[in-house]
C-alpha cells in the first residue's frame, strides 16, 4: 500500500507540475534544439536586443503586462535585462506558489509556515527550473520566443555580468544528470517542503510531508533511471549546492539594489528581506 501511495504522490506532483509551469523541460529542449517552426530570436548584442523589442512585442500583442516588452522600453541595457530577470522570477514565484498548494498536505500547514517555506524555497526551485531553459551557450526567454547568449550576459558591466553566470555553471552540472519533468516535479516539491528553514513553527508536520516526497523521489529515480545508481545521492547533494547559489544570489541582488539605480519588485523585496 505504501508503495502505491508513493507512486500516486509522484503522479500527482508530475500532473501539478505540468499544470502550473508553462515551459516544461521537454518543451524547452525542443526550443533549444531549434526543432520548432519558429526558432527563438537570438539576442547576442545591443542591436539584436533592440530588434527583440520589435519582434517579441509583435509576438506578444495583447499581453500588455509582459515584462520583457515593458523592460525593453527602458534606456540602459543592464537595467532592461535586470528587469527581465525580475519579471521571470516573479512569474515563476507565482507558478511555484500554485504548485506548492497542490503538494498534498502543504495547504493544511500553518499559513506562516507556508510563507516561510516559499520565502526560502522559491529561489532554489527557480534556479532548478531555470536550468531546463539553459544550455552551455545561453538561456531561453519570453516563453521560448527568445534566446539570450551567455557571452552577451557576461559582457554586461559589473555587477550585472555576475548575475547569471553562476546559474549557468550550476545548470551545466545539473543538466548532466538528465532528469525529466517527472523527476523535476518531485525534486522541486522536496525543495519547497523542507523542514529546516529558519523560523518554522510545525517542523514535524513538514518533515512528514518531506519524507514522503523524498521517498517517492528515490523510488521514482530507481524506476526512471535504473542504470544510474548514484542519481539519488547526487541529487541530494544538489540541494546543498542550490542553497549556496541562493545565498550568493541574494547578496548580489542586495548589492545591485544598493549601488545601482534600479528598483526591485515588491514581491522580491519581501522574499529577500531578512532572508540570510
Amino acid at each position: 500500500t505504501q508503495l502505491a501511495d508513493l507512486k500516486t504522490l509522484a503522479r500527482q506532483l508530475h500532473e501539478a507540475y505540468l499544470r502550473h509551469f508553462h515551459l516544461s523541460k521537454a518543451k524547452a529542449r525542443i526550443f533549444l534544439a531549434g526543432k520548432t517552426s519558429t526558432p527563438p530570436f537570438v539576442i547576442h548584442d545591443l542591436d539584436t536586443l533592440q530588434q527583440a523589442q520589435q519582434i517579441l512585442a509583435t509576438h506578444m500583442q495583447g499581453d500588455e503586462k509582459d515584462g520583457l516588452v515593458s523592460a525593453l522600453q527602458e534606456r540602459e541595457t543592464e537595467s532592461r535585462l535586470f528587469r527581465c530577470c525580475q519579471h521571470t522570477s516573479v512569474e515563476t514565484v507565482t507558478q511555484l506558489t500554485e504548485f506548492a498548494k497542490a503538494v498534498p498536505g502543504f495547504a493544511n500547514l500553518d499559513l506562516n509556515d507556508q510563507v516561510t517555506l516559499l520565502k526560502y524555497g522559491v529561489h532554489e526551485a527557480f534556479f532548478t527550473l531555470l536550468a531546463s531553459c539553459m544550455n552551455k551557450d545561453g538561456l531561453l526567454v519570453a516563453h521560448g520566443k527568445g534566446f539570450i547568449t551567455r557571452e552577451f550576459l557576461k559582457s554586461l558591466r559589473r555587477p550585472f555580468s555576475d548575475l547569471l553566470e553562476p546559474k549557468f555553471q550550476f545548470a551545466m552540472c545539473f543538466n548532466a544528470l538528465q532528469l525529466d519533468d517527472s523527476d523535476l516535479a518531485l525534486f522541486v516539491a522536496a525543495i519547497i517542503c523542507c523542514g529546516d528553514r529558519p523560523g518554522l513553527a510545525n517542523v514535524s508536520h513538514i518533515e512528514f510531508i518531506q519524507e514522503s516526497i523524498i521517498h517517492a523521489l528515490q523510488l521514482h529515480l530507481q524506476a526512471n533511471h535504473p542504470d544510474n545508481t548514484f542519481l539519488f545521492p547526487k541529487l541530494l547533494q544538489k540541494l546543498a549546492d542550490l542553497r549556496q547559489l541562493v545565498t550568493e544570489h541574494a547578496q548580489l541582488v542586495q548589492d545591485i539594489k544598493k549601488t545601482q539605480d534600479t528598483s526591485l519588485h515588491p514581491l522580491l523585496q519581501e522574499i529577500y528581506k531578512d532572508m540570510y
Binding site: G67, R83, V93, V115, T116, P266
Partner: peptide, 21 residues
C-alpha cells in the same frame, strides 16, 4: 510574517492573481 510578506500571503490565499511588475 503576514505583515512583512503581504504579497506572498495574498498569493497563498487567493487563486492565481496577476502580480504586476
Amino acid at each position: 510574517l503576514k505583515e512583512k510578506h503581504k504579497i506572498l500571503h495574498r498569493l497563498l490565499q487567493n487563486s492565481t492573481s496577476p502580480v504586476d511588475l
